[in-house]
Simulated scan of single mutants.
Amino acid sequence: MELSEDAKFVDRVSEFVVAYDFEVYDIIGTITWFREHRIIMYSIVGLYLFSIYFGLKWMKHRPAYTLTRPLIFWNIGLALFSIICTLRGIPEALYNFSKPDRTFQVICVGLPHNYATSFWALLLVLSKVVEFGDTAFIILRKQKLIALHWFHHAATLWMCWIGYEYYETTGRAFFVNAFVHSFMYSYYALKAMKIKIPRKISQALTTLQIVQLTLGMYIASATMYFLAQGRPCRMHFETVCMGGIIIGVFLVLFVRFYIDSYSLKNKIKKI
């Protein structure tokens, strides 16, 4: 299996962002490692689901842990990480979107590329394993664990891992996810601090998630459109099809969650 053009032609310094020394790494070697060790990802997801099942059983007859201080630092850490990812990912995206036929360029061609963008995209993939800790806090604090939460975490790791394996051009849109998480984890940190936050903020965050997923569906649809036109597109079939299905499921679940949580009918019931 050939490595993508992005992996072969990565400039350390380009006109849109300068990569720091620590951001320069062996991209081809890392991609190869991901491809040869996909079983690790499946094992992590399996262990995650296993831990959820037995964690809920273990906490069933135990008092809830408070964990206020650890939760505050946890969310602040993830918020800061997401902000950095956003700032490092935006310059390359803006540069590529400034070109003619920008949608095709970004989705199917996506050159030029930079070490800084690649490095933080890789860290974002790895952060999806770390974010499983969100579920641990929910279980230990005996909060309600909805299917949307654990399915979203497990499937997101799957998509990100596969996307990095094929080093997809659209992976450079990772900053969109980081941007959403910047607000999301900041919101969770403030809630953990017992700061009263208007319900409209929570509603706006869910709306932001839906917008992100709608963008993902647009990318999948645009890829299929370009392929139907016979235009060369280096997005991999597995990523487009399976990723599109998962994002579609996410979108339905988030819209349903939005309606259940914020619809007028639901508000009347609560009154």
Rank of each mutant, 00 (worst) to 15 (best):
D6W: 11
A7W: 04
S14D: 09
E15F: 09
F16E: 09
A19T: 04
I28W: 10
G29M: 10
T32H: 15
I40P: 04
Y42H: 12
V45S: 04
F50I: 08
S51I: 15
Y53P: 03
Y53W: 06
F54A: 03
G55R: 12
K57N: 15
L67H: 12
W74N: 00
I76Y: 02
L78K: 04
L78P: 10
I83C: 03
C85V: 05
G89D: 00
E92R: 08
K99R: 13
P100V: 06
R102F: 08
T103P: 03
T103W: 04
V109A: 11
G110W: 00
L111Q: 04
A116G: 14
A116R: 02
A121C: 10
V125W: 01
V129D: 07
F132V: 07
D134P: 02
I138E: 13
L140N: 11
R141V: 09
Q143T: 14
L145M: 15
I146C: 13
F151Q: 03
H153M: 05
A154M: 06
M159A: 07
G163V: 09
Y164C: 01
E165C: 09
Y166Q: 05
Y167D: 10
Y167Q: 13
T169F: 00
T170R: 08
A173E: 06
F174N: 00
V176H: 02
V180T: 03
F183I: 01
M184C: 01
Y188F: 15
M193K: 11
I195K: 06
P198V: 14
T206W: 10
L213R: 12
T214N: 09
I219C: 14
A222M: 15
F226K: 04
A228G: 08
Q229F: 06
G230P: 03
P232E: 05
C233Y: 04
M235Y: 13
M235A: 13
I246S: 10
Y262W: 14
K265M: 08
K265Y: 08
